[in-house]
């Protein structure tokens, strides 16, 4: 693997998640975008050639024909191409309820210290603030996949102590057994949070913990972009930048239209270190 010298921070985020993909496991991914790309990248580069994914429209282990037209990330012939099965939304939820889905990967608007996810409302529900679309399939994933990986941006307004509205469950109030008491399957829950700048896991007592940062940033800079301070691991690792091999597959076979990288900032190697450019540079 050769470290890449120029890449977008969102490309790095997908590479980080791709390296977490475990071979021979099943993933329920949000349709299209980073979560799906991460599994496909892991399959194609060989990190996890036999990982499989499903989407909430019942596309079971598809081999999608990319790219997709706008919005056509589910219930479309390209997204469901060469699947092993065509099901429906209830089929997808059944597989997760049965314990057949090892991991879920989600994008989210807002996450809190106990891994709860908000995709419904910023502000005071229902009257004072901004309405968003709701949990969609994320609630099923976060409730029933054995482990949940969240992808989000490293921004203060996204890393909060308590989300404004729990759309999809993390560890709820953080107390032991809170998920089970609410009726959720035992042994499930948040596992990793990945941003372009950092990676987090959860402590034994179910609190968000910073475990790694990107090579171009520092723990202090990451903490500036957290409204609440997470637990910090004794050893905070440095995440390897994307490799040329990863980016080649990602750019030529997956996000061929560059939709991931038309937002977010670019990172370049200046001969001595990696530098983050201003957004849009």
């Amino acid at each position: 693997m050769t470290a890449a010298t120029t890449f977008n921070e969102r490309e790095a985020e997908v590479c980080y998640v791709a390296r977490l993909i475990e071979d021979g496991r099943t993933y329920w991914v949000a349709g299209g975008g980073g979560p799906m790309y991460a599994v496909l990248l892991a399959q194609r580069i060989g990190y996890a050639p036999n990982a499989q994914y499903i989407t909430e429209d019942g596309a079971i282990a598809p081999e999608p024909m990319l790219p997709f037209d706008p919005i056509q990330t589910m219930v479309s012939s390209r997204a469901g191409y060469r699947a092993l099965q065509w099901g429906t939304m209830n089929v997808a939820q059944d597989y997760a309820a049965l314990g057949l889905i090892d991991y879920g990967i989600l994008n989210t608007l807002q996450v809190d210290t106990h891994g709860n996810i908000n995709s419904t409302f910023l502000g005071e529900y229902p009257d004072s603030g901004r309405r968003f679309g709701g949990p969609g399939g994320a609630d099923s994933i976060a409730a029933m996949a054995w482990r949940t990986i969240l992808m989000t941006d490293q921004q203060r307004r996204k890393f909060v102590s308590r989300v404004d509205f729990i759309s999809s469950p993390g560890f709820l109030d953080g107390t032991e057994g809170a998920r089970e008491a609410a009726g959720l399957p035992a042994g499930t829950g948040p596992w990793r949070v990945v941003t372009p700048a950092a990676m987090y896991d959860y402590t034994q007592d179910r609190r968000l913990r910073l475990i790694a940062v990107s090579v171009w940033t520092t723990v202090d800079d990451v903490l500036k972009e957290c409204e609440h301070h997470p637990v910090i691991a004794d050893q905070v690792a440095t995440l390897d930048p994307p490799s040329d091999e990863e980016l080649t597959i990602y750019r030529t076979e997956l996000d061929v239209r560059g939709q991931t990288s038309d937002r977010g900032s670019w990172i370049t190697w200046n001969g001595e270190k990696y530098e983050q450019m201003e957004d849009g540079a």
Binding site: N90, A97, G136, G137, D139, A178, L184
Partner: peptide, 27 residues
């Protein structure tokens, strides 16, 4: 949630009055 709604429809489709759901709790 999306699947919460499709489960409600499944319950209707099987002539039931309710259906168990392993998600939505605690939210």
């Amino acid at each position: 949630s999306n699947a919460g709604m499709t489960l409600r429809l499944r319950a209707g489709a099987q002539g039931a009055s309710f259906i168990q759901n392993r998600s939505l709790g605690g939210t």
